[in-house]
Write a protein that binds this DNA or RNA. Structure first.
Lengths: 239, 239
DNA sequence: AAGTGGTCTAGACCACCCT
DNA sequence: GGGTGGTCTAGACCACTTT
């Protein structure tokens, strides 16, 4: 069998459901040694499960005292999601209106962002993204053509990340994002159905796959009245 | 001695400087077993050092192949930093103009955000933050008074996080943030030295310390023309 | 003094990739 | 088949907090 599940993953899931079901914020979890005995695994395996839960903010550990349940979080753990999944999580029905899908060449900033040569072939996909049939976001995505031959023949009204994963075996795992407040120009205001000079949230992203390749450059401009962005920042443990 | 440095921290730092000095993106690192031999530690210790570097995006590992240097990042690893540190990292000289520092009571939304009773005592600190002596951000911070007796007697023109750490032994380790684009009202526009209705980036944060206590609620409104926000989102490895 | 999480060891086997 | 990272074990000592 090709998909054997690791013990620490199993333990993590069991712990998470038990914790959320039976314990309240700031309540004490069993000790690591006790959990190891209960689950019949070594303490290091327990620690690996706890580490993930700590990184995700569900629990916290205090040296010399024990491990505790965190206060409920403002936001879910931040994750790189497609527009469609993001909208569904917010309770909207996602949609898409394709404005352009073409093969072009990389300008200077795109070439630099994607780590390709100036003038090399890049796909250019421009869409207006809808939530409950009303404009939410204007999006321009560019991808190196070399990595995804035949991309324009796919159904671009559906999720791009799904296509990359199923058709090209490319799994996007990280996005480095720059977020700005901007004032909408005439064209984008019209596309989004708001008045010109309205405020909007611009998210510029460069995405990396699980092999470290730069696979996507995207700029998404969201209507300020319909969208906010949540994130969690942490401080290094011992710098 | 009270501050013994862990081996994996030492190894991580050595690795990071070696990697950035001698290796280029997508170049192969030595194997874990080789590194263990070179540094005279066990493989698990090497893995702990590599894990941190992977989480921070400096390197990536591919099963069956090896560990590689990542493409240079758009942004530094996201960290919860004070305004002062943030500005210095961006090449500005930070400053602060105190508008108000008072003891008030928690309104409904503040009480809910900080997990305290409605009407309980909270400090309220309002400042205009400067970068190279020009306004960068308008900030309102509220903290539960119970946790920080005598806070208003401290020097509030300096870093709040420094005060919390040195005076109150409270280490802020996490911030849950909501980021919006807004249009500036008259008062804030005046304070920031821009025209009314300008776009701005609003960052609302709820901060948690290393004991899981909610210690701070802050709203920071940044001038759109001087500030952007960088963040990294990741996708779970095997969902 | 006792108990906790944090670190570390020296092995072992596995799933996966390459040749 | 040989090498890689991923997982796991059964111990051990440490730094720290509480009793």
């Amino acid at each position: 069998m090709t998909n054997m599940e690791a013990k620490h993953v199993l333990v993590r899931r069991k712990l998470q459901t038990e914790v959320t079901a039976h314990l309240r914020p700031n309540e004490l979890l069993p000790t690591e040694r006790e959990l190891a005995a209960r689950f019949g695994v070594s303490r290091m395996t327990i620690r690996q499960a706890l580490r993930t839960l700590i990184d995700e903010g569900h629990i916290y550990a205090v040296r010399g005292q024990g491990t505790f349940v965190s206060e409920p979080r403002v936001s879910k753990t931040q994750a790189l999601t497609s527009f469609s999944d993001d909208m569904r999580a917010r309770g909207y029905r996602p949609g898409s209106r394709l404005l352009e899908a073409s093969l072009g060449t990389a300008d200077a900033s795109t070439a630099k962002a994607l780590g390709v040569d100036l003038g090399s072939a890049v796909y250019r996909i421009e869409r207006v993204r809808l939530a409950d049939d009303a404009p939410m976001c204007h999006e321009l995505v560019q991808l190196p053509a070399r990595l995804f031959p035949g991309l324009l023949d796919q159904d671009l009204e559906s999720s791009l990340y799904q296509i990359l994963e199923n058709r090209y075996r490319t799994r996007v795992v990280r996005g480095d994002q720059t977020i700005r407040a901007i004032s909408l120009d005439r064209r984008r205001a019209d596309l989004l159905g708001v008045t010109p000079r309205s405020s909007a949230l611009s998210v510029q992203r460069i995405s990396t796959d699980d092999r470290g390749r730069l696979v996507e450059r995207a700029e998404s401009v969201y209507r300020a009245d319909r969208y906010d962005f949540t994130t969690t920042v942490t401080r290094p443990r011992k710098p």
